[in-house]
Amino acid sequence: MTYCVAMRLHAGLVFLSDSRTNAGVDNVGTFRKMYLFENPGDRVMVLMTSGNLSLSQSIRQAITDYRSAQGESIWNVASMYDAARIVGEAIRRVHARDAKALGDFGIDFNVRMIFGGQIRGEGCRLFQMYSAGNFIESHDENTYFQIGESKYGKPIIDRVITPASSLDEAAKCALISMDSTLRSNISVGLPLDLLVYECDALAVNRFVSIDEKNAYFRMIRETWGTQLKRIFESIDDPVWNAPQPSTEPALSKAGTYAHPVRIPPPKDVAAGVQQSLPLQSVAQQGGDDAQH
């Protein structure tokens, strides 16, 4: 499986991906899922992939090889929107070539991608790509995209990240989001690729591959778990049936009533008595064998 997250901020872009792929608990592999298209001084574009690995690799190659009849390629289009269209066209080309054959073997055409970056003359842009080759773009109302196992790492991003967040804050948040996912899902794993791009740099100068020995990520894992437990323990336990009037944040107050949806027991079940079949001992079950 996969977990990838990308954030579009006023200060730039943050991309983070894991590298685990698996086809069962005993068939685990490591494949990098982040690809960089960079022409320093002109454009920086990052692609992250999830879903069927063979499709992702084929699409990446189709993007690299793409030339339109007018000579357009990912290396010379004037905007990130046009570059995203090329990514979408590459997805559709691979679908047209492989989808039916895969379907004959019961395999879905399953791929999602995050594509973002900057081309000289415009600002940073970020897109989420779908299996049909269509895409949506990030704006200030939705400043990040996730693909793969997104549910575990989403809450921290929703609570922390805004378009005004700094790149370092976003990188830290992305790593915490990844740590939460690693702890809850064995199909996501190290090493990680982290790329931080500063707006208008038009070159990548902050990239790291993170394994289990990385000191900062180890600190994140230990500190986040400890601080979460400390915060949890600092929150009061619930108070039930607090007297009225009461100013404390009680879970329930005396005199207010709520009832669960009750399913009545059958009439032949005595009130307060749970009927059950008699239990057999191991000796009874074994018969004569238990005596030997």
Rank of each mutant, 00 (worst) to 15 (best):
W224N: 14
P260I: 03
N185G: 02
G133H: 02
Q70T: 11
G255V: 07
D42C: 09
L55K: 01
R183S: 11
R20S: 04
L195G: 01
A6H: 03
F127N: 02
D104W: 12
A62N: 08
I147C: 04
T2Q: 00
Y144S: 04
D179F: 07
G133M: 00
E89L: 15
R67G: 08
L126M: 04
S184C: 11
R218W: 09
N241R: 15
G117E: 02
K33Q: 02
I74C: 05
H139V: 10
N22W: 06
H10R: 14
P238H: 02
I220G: 04
L277M: 11
I147K: 02
P260Q: 04
I91E: 00
G287H: 06
A62E: 11
N205C: 12
V87T: 05
W240F: 15
P155E: 13
S234Y: 10
N110M: 11
P265W: 07
I210A: 04
E122K: 07
A258G: 14
G116H: 04
G51F: 01
A83E: 00
D42Y: 12
R206W: 10
D268N: 15
Y152P: 03
D288Y: 13
G148M: 04
G103P: 09
I210F: 00
L279F: 11
A23I: 11
T30A: 08
A6R: 06
V261M: 10
M34R: 05
Q291C: 09
L251K: 14
E72C: 05
A96T: 13
I147S: 02
Y144K: 02
G153D: 05
E212P: 02
L13Q: 01
V208N: 00
N52R: 06
L9R: 01
A78P: 07
R218A: 11
A258W: 13
D237N: 11
M1V: 06
V204E: 03
E233T: 13
W224V: 12
N241H: 15
R60C: 07
F105S: 14
V46W: 02
I63L: 05
R206G: 03
D18C: 02
C173H: 01
S68K: 06
I235R: 12
A101L: 14
N27V: 09
M113A: 10
A11R: 10
D140K: 13
I91Y: 00
V196C: 03
A11H: 13
I114V: 09
V239W: 07
S54T: 08
V204T: 12
E141S: 14
A290L: 08
F127R: 01
S166F: 12
F232Q: 12
T256D: 13
Q275C: 09
V14Y: 02
